[in-house]
Design a protein around this nucleic acid. Sequence first.
DNA 1: GGTGGGATTAGCT
DNA 2: GCTAATCCCACCA
Length: 199
Amino acid sequence: MSQKLGVEFYARDAATVARELIGKVLIRRLDGQSLRGRLVEVEAYLGQDDAASHAYRGMTLRNQVMFGRAGHIYVYFTYGMHYCMNVVTAEEGIGQAVLLRAAEPLEGLKLMQEHRGLEDVHNLCSGPAKLVQAFGVTKADNGLSLTDSDTWIEDDGASPQVVTSPRIGLSKAIDAPLRFTDRQSTFLSKPNKNRYTGR
DNA sequence: GGTGGGATTAGCT
DNA sequence: GCTAATCCCACCA
């Protein structure tokens, strides 16, 4: 029996929400089809005290959704070519969010493969920009509500073993243990090459 | 197996 | 002008 997550789930501390999102199922209805993927890797980004968070320097046009209501998605564009997707958490005005980094594809594999332009199931959602691409999310989805749209997250009762580790791809606050993964999963993002070696 | 560089844009300094 | 919550491909071993 699956239960759709409501605002009360999202309106808590980002680290708590992140830990509990592992094992939940992201669902999106698109073009008459269903896309489903089990979240296996996420990262928490805290508010203005977290140097690695987009919220660190306060609200801007780009990150204003982060400061909005919990349960909406913050989609941002980076590296000139990639989108990443976050779930806004906590109270309005704080600027906390959880970055969705990887998922295990469950349904709609054919459409995901089409979106990604490749077949390998282990390479469809194994990274934040890949996940977004597989699910057909774009900047037009920035601000979308997960409690009142064709995109949402469900609890199907799975209870994976959650492991904590430092966040990936950062140059600031690199030691904070705010990355949460499913220990059993083979669908995690690949360890990214270190471009910031000790700097 | 591993390393190195290119793509391409918004936001900050 | 530089950096970024990234990914992919070419090349070398």
